[in-house]
Each structure stands twice: as structure tokens, then as C-alpha cells.
Simulated scan of single mutants.
Amino acid sequence: MKRGISFEIPNEYGSILGEVLKPLEVHKYIWRSGGEESYIVEDDELGEPLFTNEINCMDGLFLKELLEDNEYYLIFVDLKAYSKGKNQEDIETYEDFLNSDCELVLLVVDSIYATIYCKEREQLERLYDNAQIKGFDNLQYITENNDTRTRLSVW
């Protein structure tokens, strides 16, 4: 059974998360962020944090504009998508994910290692196809046989 996908993104400034999430209707979700380390690029230098330093939930339209309309540099990212009106509790394991209202988890570690867990099969296929079209390196499906992650967190 496919749990998600993993791949490597370029280690550079850009709007890469906007590209990664392009197949999704980002605006339809509430997104929970743990305030991990990423920065908006201002005048070709790292500026303000892309996300606040605290755990917060943001409207999908806000996140979509943030990710598509800015240039930024990713170091660590932990985003979780919930349908509007659903419980936005934090999850720590894949089993928590399956038993929660969380629909998608996006993790970026060390600027290049991206992982997406997704409950909806068609969305997962679209995300995989998009990553393939974008030419992201080392793209593969995550299955119960190759999933080495013990926590759905970047820490």
C-alpha cells in the first residue's frame, strides 16, 4: 500500500513548495505549521521567517499566496493539511495520521529531502506525477515495506 512519496528538491532560493503542491487545491485546507526554519528571500538575502516560530494554523488561501508569491529558502518544513472544520490536532506517527482528520503531511529536512504522506490515492498520484514532471531527484513511493520514518516530524 502506498503511504506517500519522497524526493529531493533543489537546494536553492525559489517558490519550490508552491511547485510541489501545485496539483492540490491548497486553499481548501487549514494548514498546521510547527514554525520550522525557513526564510523569505529579500534582496537576495535571507529575511523574515517564512512561518512563525510557534505552532499555528493558517488558512489555505493565505498559505497558497505565501508559497506561490514569494521567493524563500527552506531548511526545515513541517506542514499538515486538515479539511476546514475538522480537528487540527497534532500527529506524531503514521498510525496517528491514519486515525486523525489530517489529510496530508509535507516534511522537508536539510533543505532538500521532501516527504509527503497523503490519504487520498488520486491526490498522491497527482503529486507523484507532478514531482516526476518537475524532475525532482530520487522520486519514489513510500510503502509499508520501505517506510523508515518513526515520527511524522522533521525533528
Rank of each mutant, 00 (worst) to 15 (best):
T115V: 13
E120Y: 09
I142N: 01
E37S: 12
F62S: 07
V109F: 15
S153V: 04
L61G: 05
P49K: 13
K134H: 11
T115I: 13
V108N: 10
K119D: 03
C57W: 05
P23E: 10
T52M: 10
E42D: 14
T93F: 12
I116W: 01
G85S: 10
L67F: 04
D101E: 15
V154N: 08
V26N: 00
D43Y: 14
S111R: 14
Q132G: 08
H27D: 13
F51C: 02
N70T: 06
N138K: 15
R149G: 03
L104I: 02
S83R: 15
K64Q: 06
S111W: 09
S111G: 09
N70H: 14
E36R: 11
V109A: 14
I9W: 05
E125F: 09
T52K: 11
L152E: 01
F76S: 06
L17W: 07
D147T: 05
L21W: 05
S83C: 12
D44P: 03
E122H: 08
D96A: 10
E42S: 09
Y117V: 05
F51K: 00
M58L: 15
E42T: 11
F76D: 07
L17D: 02
I91D: 03
E19C: 11
Y13F: 15
Y73T: 03
L24I: 04
R151V: 13
Y113D: 10
W155N: 12
V26Q: 00
G14P: 15
E65L: 04
L107S: 01
D90S: 12
P10R: 12
L50D: 01
S111D: 12
L24F: 02
N56S: 15
L46T: 04
G34L: 14
G85N: 08
Y113G: 04
L152S: 03
T143V: 09
E37Q: 13
L17P: 02
E8P: 07
P49I: 07
D44Y: 08
I40H: 02
E92C: 09
E48N: 11
D78Q: 14
L50C: 07
D110W: 15
H27F: 08
I16Y: 11
E36N: 13
I16A: 07
S38D: 14
S15C: 06
C118M: 05
L107C: 05
Y94K: 05
E12Q: 15
G18S: 13
Y113E: 06
C57H: 09
K86W: 04
I30L: 13
I40Y: 04
L67T: 05
A114P: 00
L61C: 05
D137M: 12
V20A: 04
V108H: 10
G47V: 01
E89V: 10
L74V: 04
E122C: 06
T93S: 15
F7P: 01
N138G: 11
L17S: 04
L127A: 07
L107I: 04
Y113T: 08
K64P: 00
E144F: 08
E103V: 02
F136Q: 02
Q123G: 06
D78W: 08
E95Y: 11
G60H: 01
F62V: 03
V26T: 05
Y113A: 07
D69V: 03
C102W: 00
L46C: 07
G35F: 02
E103A: 02
E144H: 09
L127W: 03
S100H: 07
L127M: 13
V41P: 06
C118W: 00
I116N: 01
T150A: 09
D137I: 10
M58R: 10
L139R: 14
C118Y: 00
T93E: 13
